[in-house]
Simulated scan of single mutants.
Amino acid sequence: MLIGYARVSTLDQNPNLQSDALTAAGCEKIFIEKISGTVAERPELNKLKEHLRKGDTLVVWRLDRLGRSLKDLIEWVNYLDSQGVAFKSIQEGFDTGTSGGRLVFHLFGALAEFERNLIQERTMAGLTAARSRGRVGGRPKKLNEAKQKMARQMYDAKNPIKEICDALNISKPTLYKYLAG
């Protein structure tokens, strides 16, 4: 049985391109996930794993839909192989049920990881360049120095935590973060 897995990274993205391609490839069942590939726990992927049987073939639209690193992909293919399940990728056009397919898998896996590393390096270089020009990323601080001092004084004066949080319009975890720092 051909079983498909489609994944998009955000809830805003549409998996139709992938699911249409998987249906055209002959998949009888398709598991669709809307979650980042970097997230370790993927509920639909776990359901798919339970659904696979010896002789099945797991089909994906592209390699990066299943795993984000070569290590992840190799672990998946090794797991599938141990279960007697083949792995096919539509875009890359290979099947791990053959020795040539295994070779192609390893080559494309390495290229996919290389591409991801390049993206990370460019992102980090862009962030470094922005910081050097004085741009600071991230969420703005909830409390300025004066309010931080006020929080510390109220806490040291044994004011109730709820009263401190209400006065400064912050949550308990935020208060404790500032008190610890």
Rank of each mutant, 00 (worst) to 15 (best):
A167P: 01
S9N: 03
N117C: 02
L179Y: 06
L70K: 07
D156T: 11
M154P: 08
I35L: 15
L63F: 08
A21W: 02
E92L: 15
R65V: 12
N117F: 03
T10M: 11
R62Q: 13
V104K: 14
A24I: 09
D56I: 08
G97E: 04
L17D: 07
A129F: 03
H106M: 11
D81T: 13
V60K: 00
Q91S: 15
S82C: 03
S82K: 07
G93S: 15
V77A: 12
G37W: 08
R53S: 13
Y155N: 12
D166Y: 06
L66Q: 07
R122H: 04
L103I: 15
A167N: 09
D20N: 15
E113P: 02
G93T: 09
D166F: 05
E41A: 13
D95Q: 03
T123W: 00
D156F: 10
D12V: 11
K49A: 00
A25M: 11
E121W: 01
L73Q: 08
P15M: 12
R65N: 09
Y178W: 12
N169C: 03
D72N: 09
A125H: 00
A112Q: 07
T128W: 00
Y155G: 01
S99V: 13
T23D: 12
L127H: 03
Y178A: 07
K158C: 11
T38I: 10
L70M: 13
S36W: 08
E33F: 06
Q13C: 12
D166K: 14
E28H: 15
W61R: 01
E33N: 11
H106D: 12
G84V: 04
L11Y: 11
S89M: 10
K54Y: 04
D72I: 06
I3F: 06
G109R: 05
G134M: 07
H106C: 05
N159E: 15
Q153R: 10
G26S: 12
K142F: 14
N46Y: 05
I35R: 14
E41Q: 14
G126E: 01
A112C: 09
N16W: 05
Q18P: 00
R135L: 09
L143H: 09
M154D: 06
V39I: 15
V136I: 15
L107H: 02
G134H: 07
T174V: 06
Q91L: 14
L80T: 12
P173K: 00
Y176K: 02
C165P: 09
R122T: 05
Q13R: 09
G109T: 06
D64T: 03
Y176M: 03
I170N: 05
A6E: 03
R131G: 00
Y178E: 12
A151P: 02
M124V: 02
A86M: 12
G134P: 01
K141H: 14
I3C: 10
L143K: 11
K47P: 08
A40S: 13
S99R: 08
A110H: 02
G84I: 04
E44S: 10
K141A: 15
R42E: 14
A25S: 14
A40G: 06
G101A: 13
D72A: 08
A6F: 01
F94G: 04
D95H: 04
M1W: 10
G84E: 06
P173G: 04
L45V: 02
A167H: 03
M1V: 13
D81G: 09
A151E: 01
A21E: 10
